[in-house]
Structures are given as C-alpha cells and as structure tokens.
Amino acid sequence: MTDTDTAIEARGLGKRFGRRNALDACSFRLPAGRICALVGPNGAGKSTLLTLAAGLARPSGGELRVLGTTPAEARREIAYVAQDKALFPQLTVADTLRLGADLNPGRWDQEAAERIVHGDGAESALDPYAKVRGLSGGQRTRVALALALGKRPALLLLDEPVSDLDPLARHQLMGTLLAEAAEHGTTVVMSSHILGELAGACDFLLLLGGGRVRMAGPADDLTAVHRLVTGPGGAAELAPHTVIESRPHGRGQSALIRPEGPVGPGWECEEPSLEDVLLAHLRNPSAPALLAPEATVRDLAGTGVQA
C-alpha cells in the first residue's frame, strides 16, 4: 500500500543504550501535514525518537518508516535540528547558508533561509559575515532553523527548538516556523517542554513516557475523549470509567477521566484543555495508553491495528 499521507510510522520501535531502553515497543502513526507536539518528561525518549527518524542512528528493534520509506532513503526530504543547534563554528552566517545551498542542490530556497536569518526588521538582521561561534543562542537557533527550512523538507524534526529563547524571540520564531510549514505542507514534529505554546500551535500530539507511547492522536480528538469531572461522590462512583487522575475536592473529588458511557448525575462535566490532559498524564505515568484511530499503525490490509 503506497502511503503518501503518512509522515512517520513506527511498529514496535525500540532503541537500547547499553542496558537502558530509551525506547520500548513504540507503535504509532503520524499523518502527513500535521504540526505534532512530542511531549514527555526528561528521559522519556523524545530526543531518541527524533534521532531515529532523522536517520542518525539505527533502531535496536522494530520498524520505522518515514515518508513511506526508510529514514536513510528519505534523507533529502527530512530536516533535523538538534537540541544544541550544532553549527560549524568557523563558518560565517553567509557561508553556513551557502553550505545549505551546496548540500541541497535543486531544492534550496535561499530567500526563505535569508528571511528567517534576518528576521522581520533591520534590528534583528544578522551580519552575514559574522562567524557562527560569535552568535548568541537565539541567533544560532535562527541560523539552524534557516538551514533546516531552506531545504524545503517534507518532514521537519525539531528537538526543543525554542526552549532557550526569550519570549519575544520564541513567539516570532514559532510564527515564522508555522507559516513556512503551512505554506509548503511540511509535517513538523516538535519536542518541547513549553506546553502552553505547543497547545496553541500543534494539532497532533505524541506523548512519551518511560520510552513508551502513552497518547497519540489529533489534539482535538484527545481532549474530546477526556472529561474533567467534579462531584460529591467517591472513587467507586467513577469505577466504570478510566480515571487518569483524581483529587479530593472539598467533600467530594475532582478527576480527569475517559468516560465509558454517561457520567452519573450529580457530577459536573467539562471538556479539559489540552494542557490539563497533558499534565494529568505526565503526573500519572501508569495511566493506560490511548491511541486515536488516526494514530494507530495500519496493517498490510489497510485497517487500523490497535497498538
């Protein structure tokens, strides 16, 4: 089955470093064209997953298909920016962009790259003859992103792209990133700790915990499946539903649940925000995993397979 509408598909993907399992039997599917938030506590395997998808390391087990083929074959269509925004320190900004043009013949967009490097005002414009080693963190992030986006990739993998930027730079870069991605239909996978911004920018979510997939699916679907309930009852009353997290609230309790059927009377129900859902799952790593139908791996017959 040709699959031009799947950006990443993992089946039982695993990666071991020595005795530690950075990723353990991960199965999920990321449809193309999405802006995906890759979330999880430190050590959950986010960087490892991005590295594997970028073709920089071999999985220890399982299968990983990117853009319908192996990461190595899709190298030209994938762009990756590491957490440390590695750049060649001895090159100037202009030389770095020229490197991008040289290494990506036929698909390099010099204008787009320059647009990102020079920002949207004369103030933020970078001196093209400045050496990379003399740039500030925010400026290096800009150059690194320019290299990635100038390549016009089909898939953009970003490891904490804006974490070390001030709020204004963060906002501007996210805006630029999203606009560029939308214009070319690029699939973006972004790992970040800053849930608030992710919630606004992303329409797909992948939550990792302990090297496993805990939640995957469109952000709207995932929030729609959960309910924030408050009521006077005890834990027993919520038993038929899947309780992610519950806390005592006055004389009753407040809980985040996945309802299996109608919630009883006396309970106040509302749809939680994406941030609520994420935080609840991060606080309770033992909650059962949830994969939306769009995020499940397709078997050879084309029907969904629950991981």
């Binding site: 805006g175 999203l178 991605a181 214009e183 606004g200 920018a201 992303c202």
Partner: peptide, 11 residues
C-alpha cells in the same frame, strides 16, 4: 499565513 506568523497559532 500572516495570522499564523503574528500569533504562532496552528494554521
């Protein structure tokens, strides 16, 4: 595109 660039909201 302009709205996305200004607000960093999903397209």
């Amino acid at each position: 595109r302009e709205v996305v660039e200004a607000t960093a909201v999903n397209p």
